[in-house]
Design a protein around this nucleic acid. Structure first.
Lengths: 346, 346
DNA sequence: GAAGCGAAAGTGAACGTTCACTATTCTGCC
DNA sequence: GGCAGAATAGTGAACGTTCACTTTCGCTTC
């Protein structure tokens, strides 16, 4: 579109100064605070800025000030699923007067580490919050440049951030189910490359042990609905569990479908729990008991750590609960006939 | 972490030059291509770079070259739902040698327009792809700076991008349902602030007209499952539709639930279609007929337009189908008893 | 009425690169 | 041996800001 002649130079501070009949430094002051200037001067600069359509070149500014006002959140594309986490991060950054950008990374740990370092030291951002795990000892490679806050508990397979691996709700789910009378459980796990999947599995096993329950096993899974269907189809008819803890809602819906295909009623014959509070959960027949995660809060707190690290203001972190179990129709005491579907949406 | 003394200056090209015993320009050349240098010189610079841990300051570089190699995708946070769209955009940008960043905007049209202009003219990015609609005539406000490609059909309420408003699958759905024998339809619409919702509604009405079908009405909705439930509950028993076109999968699942609550069988008494191909769709009882959208392709093409606008290489666009109807259990000829896979639901 | 002071404005040098030149060295050829 | 021409390297000026000073001016104050 643009001709190759004269790359459409934008007006600079000096041109504004000339037009306003002042020095460039005066315009700089005007830009900075509009204070300490004579009203008449102010007005003339106003006019010149308007006339030229001047806008400061942020790149030049940051070059001089060594501050960009920009933060980067690096994350693997797969985690974009957690859009609400981003949403919280963006809001917190904005509050602290920063622009938050999202940069994606792919490839091996080494590649990703390199990419993050490059970004941190490119001078293009003040800080980098990496939701991707990096080669150990990266801190030492950093010449005190942009602060990189690697969210601490992000795991090797770059899939989960600290608070997301909190699997305590599994315990809550199982204690309640046990109280309802369930004794025989099944866990359909998520992809074990993910820290959160490992955490849930561990919490399941721990709860079985501690509460003296019986586990018919842990079905390997990959977060897919199919893995849920299969796990149920493979169950031994002589030793069916009465409750299934699924790694997430998709898996849980697969479990429900598998149960139906085997002629099992949910929750009559089988109670099922999910994880994530997928929008559809409430409307499934039966509506799904699940775990809601406050992703906005998690995102906010991660960015707050970063802002603090780059010397920004200390803002109020989200301190409320991060997870919450939502009980719905898919869980009930064992052996009872299923309550009629119209027994209520919640 | 960082002490307040001496802001940790990073080594510059000149320091590398001094250490290597060459001029700064030689180092610059080294950085640019590593060509036209004596092997011995190359080696010495290599050593110096290594020793100092030097990395070029991209900000200073872009200041001189007036090129940043960075593109920004501006989008409202709500659209982060379309993570797969981003994924396509990022991949295309990478292919063309650009870094793609995601910047979010909120607020009124005026605020957003301002924000986008600021970004475009800040010198921090080469191009801006705005998925947010902006005040008309913005092009004229742009002094040929960074190219802003407003995705053309993005609507006033900043919710949809051109290809996403393609509602032709609605026609496909209805033609097939009509062929199966359906005559009386209901549409549960999405929030009419969204262009895509308006497009689907319009396509529904057009199809009713053209195919000579009967419509029991268009239920206003807001993309929520509740709106689906309510739409069904409010239906006149004397004049029930046999097919429901829901604005998306969540609404559709609400419709299914509402139908069950009224004792209607899906698809026996009522065929239901959704939109989006939500992961859970396949596992619902009954699995949901829906429309899959190739968001990656849409994102890729949008970024390709931008890259072309900023004078980048012309890459292969995604030219395959953008939408695809997926037929599943929730649709069947009217009046037939449900082909119950297990009869398990009731 | 001159010294003192504060407000307002100006001057020139940085920031870390690359660009456009110019200078030097090497090579091969007559 | 001298010279053209390429290959290699160096010099200084940009890029658009802000920082650290300096200057100018007008007003008190004694």
């Amino acid at each position: 579109m643009t001709e190759h002649s004269a790359p459409a130079r934008r007006p600079t501070i000096k041109e504004v100064a000339r037009l306003a009949g002042v020095s460039h430094q005066t315009v700089s002051r005007y830009l900075k605070s509009r204070q300490g200037l004579l009203p008449a001067t102010l007005e003339r600069i106003d006019g010149a800025v308007e006339e030229l359509g001047y806008r400061p070149n942020l790149m030049a500014r940051s070059m001089r000030t060594r501050r960009t006002g920009r933060l980067a959140v690096v994350m693997p594309v797969t985690t974009f699923n957690h859009a609400r986490l981003l949403s919280g991060a963006l809001a917190a950054g904005h509050e602290a007067g920063h622009v938050v950008e999202v940069v994606s990374v792919e490839g091996s740990t080494a590649t990703r580490t390199e990419r993050v370092l490059e970004l941190a030291q490119s001078g293009q951002v003040d800080g980098v919050l990496s939701l991707t795990p990096m080669a150990a000892g990266i801190e030492h490679g950093l010449p005190e440049g942009a602060a990189v806050v690697v969210s601490p508990d992000f795991d090797d397979a770059m899939r989960s951030i600290g608070e997301l691996t909190d699997a305590s709700p599994v315990t809550e789910l199982m204690e309640r189910l046990a109280a309802l009378g369930h004794r025989r459980f099944l866990h359909v796990a998520g992809d074990q490359d993910w820290a959160s999947a490992r955490a849930r599995k561990a919490a399941y096993l721990e709860a079985v042990e501690r509460l003296g329950l019986e586990s018919v096993g842990v079905a390997e899974g990959d977060w897919s609905g199919e893995s849920g269907v299969e796990a149920v189809m493979r169950l031994d008819s002589d030793r069916l569990p009465t409750a299934v803890i699924a790694a997430n809602d998709v898996v849980a819906s697969g479990v429900v479908r598998g149960a139906h295909e085997r002629g099992l009623d949910v929750p009559g014959d089988l109670s099922v729990t999910g994880w994530d509070d997928n929008e559809l959960c409430r409307f499934l027949p039966p509506s799904l008991t699940t775990v809601r995660i406050n992703l906005e809060g998690v995102g906010r707190n991660a960015v707050l750590r970063l802002i603090k690290a780059v010397g920004g203001p200390e803002l109020e972190p989200w301190s409320g609960p991060v997870t919450q179990v939502i009980w719905r129709e898919s869980t009930a005491p064992p052996g009872r006939p299923s309550a009629s579907p119209s027994a209520g949406t919640r």
